[in-house]
């Protein structure tokens, strides 16, 4: 019983540290979102995303995934493929990017609170996501964005 209690207190203490950061952060995110900062971020990222073959429709799911998480970003990209706004190749590039780099704010804060340096948590993840997506964009074959069959296969 003593052991369980010890673990309980350790967990609770850690949780308290995280809560002190997560709650103010969520308020800041909410204010940012309501003031259209997501759209501004998206415009800012237009040029670097163009290099890995993403247009405006493909880039937005990435921005959403990076800020809010893979579930939201994937939901958007599924919807975009279904409605024909992005092709299967672009979806693959987006999928690669967001599989590696998503929920960057939440994940980073969590481990930063536990003692890891912020830069090491963010930079390698974004960098490798970008490099891997570029490789997929340049070298993936058989996924032509104008290929209707593939589009339906994904749907």
């Amino acid at each position: 019983m003593n052991i369980l209690w010890e673990g309980f207190v350790q967990g609770l203490r850690g949780l308290w540290t995280v809560a002190l950061i997560v709650i103010p952060l969520m308020i800041v995110l909410e204010i940012g979102e309501r003031n259209g900062l997501l759209q501004k971020l998206n415009r800012l990222m237009a040029r670097p995303f163009k290099v890995i073959g993403l247009g405006e429709e493909g880039a937005f799911p990435v921005v959403v995934a990076v800020v809010f998480g893979i579930t939201y970003g994937s939901g958007l990209i599924i919807n975009h493929v279904r409605t024909g706004k992005v092709g299967p190749k672009e979806a693959r590039v987006v999928g690669t990017f967001i599989a590696i780099a998503h929920a960057l704010i939440e994940d980073t804060i969590l481990f930063w609170v536990l003692g890891a340096p912020i830069l090491l948590l963010v930079v390698p993840r974004v960098l490798l996501a970008y490099i891997m997506s570029y490789i997929v964009y340049r070298f993936s074959s058989g996924l032509n964005s104008s290929d209707r069959d593939n589009l339906q296969a994904v749907d």
């Binding site: 010890e6 673990g7 967990g11 949780l15 997560v22 709650i23 969520m26 909410e30 969590l110």
Partner: peptide, 28 residues
């Protein structure tokens, strides 16, 4: 906005706690 952000933060903390606390106990 502040209220909505607070609610999201509390929700995240709760979701976090449901996993963090039992895991810490299990490891103990």
């Amino acid at each position: 906005m502040v209220w909505k952000g607070t609610k999201t933060g509390l929700h995240t903390t709760w979701e976090l706690g449901k996993v963090v606390v039992p895991t810490a106990m299990l490891v103990a």
